[in-house]
Design a protein around this nucleic acid. Sequence first.
DNA 1: ATGGCATAATTGTTATGA
Length: 253
Amino acid sequence: MKLATWNVNSIRARQERLLRWLDRERPDVLCLQELKVTDEAFPREAIEAAGYHAAVFGQKTYNGVAILSRDEPADVQRGLGDDDPQSRLVAALIDGVCIVNAYFPNGQEVGSEKWEYKLDWMRRLEAYLADRYRPSDPLVLCGDFNVARDDLDVARPHQWAGTVLCHPDAREGLEAIHRWGFLDVFREHHPEGRLYSWWDYRMLGFAQNNGLRLDHIFATETLARRCRGAEIDRDERKGDKPSDHAPVVAVFD
DNA sequence: ATGGCATAATTGTTATGA
């Protein structure tokens, strides 16, 4: 199974790039974040014409997630099962693997209401996983986590130290999820770090490779053992009208 | 302390992102 995660920063703005990428890479599963469309406005026909099913949890203007897959998804779940008004999680069973696609809150500024929401959302995700799954299940948790796990995931650690992406409380929130029973399959294949999945549009962020690794593929051990490689498609950040995130891809036997 | 850039909802300006 070839699985990828990509924050497209508006599926309508990225539709041509997305279709070209699907045609070129032909992943079995592609988890998308920041669709910025309602379910009604999701470009379902174009996705289906490319040969993919879509489990969509959309939202107007902000957020929105989807799982695209060549096989039909089963047991689709939308949201964390509470009254959260933001569309940040969609899960499905595909080819015997539980796929949980998450768009973690950014948090804006440490100490703000959005920051508290981010930390709370991570705790709720931890409870969601513990309620529904076991670490022995073949399970993938992937998406835009809006956390750089450690400074090997940050090109300029001093610039980002203490911000919502690198704050010790955000990192601890993610490590708690990791400790529940995941391996970070990209990190397993690239222990040297210093590879990034997001670059700011401003200040020549990409040209200077001033990036962070915020997009992650976590797999339970039973599945991680079957992982044959993981890469960031940083070429997709180049050219005309890119997303500010690059796709992250992992291949499982 | 703020802007840099991009996107959506709107048509001049704001909210949000990371």
